[in-house]
Amino acid sequence: MDITITFTVNGKAATVTTDPQRPLLDILREDLQLTGTKYGCGEGFCGVCTVLMDGKRTLACITPAKDADKKAIVTIEGLADGDKLHPVQEAFLAEGAMQCGYCTPGMILTTVALLREHPQPTEAEILNWMDGNICRCNNYPNILNAVRRAVREARR
């Protein structure tokens, strides 16, 4: 039986009637046409589907619709303020932290969540936190530099 959930996505209210088990990832991509959030594995192993749910890092591919009810979701499309990029987006651009860019939205949102939970992370905390996200281009060194830059910027 379908259920109706109401939640906000990037600050806008949304109501969706759907199967309670349907992944939040599909709702974002197919119903709301917010395709910045990607599919990589559907099993929680790669992090390309990362969004923020009530400010917390969340893997949209393993989040069933029912769990998103009454929540506030932020996707990559909701990070910039108009033309002004979020500092983490700026850090990724400045460090050239993308090759194909498919993992980039997930990496950026994972970094945003890191800064919320550990505003001054150690190197080990950065590695532990980011390790759930796969970059198949193996651009890890540039991405790490972007995370470090974002940490430095946030400290200012």
């Binding site: 395709t35 990724f92 651009l93 050239g96 993308m98 860019g101 498919y102 980039t104």
Partner: peptide, 20 residues
Amino acid sequence: ARPNRRDLVTGAHKFPSDLI
């Protein structure tokens, strides 16, 4: 640097799997 890099950090770039 890659010309369309900005679209990669904003999620605006449409990968083939994003097309609707």
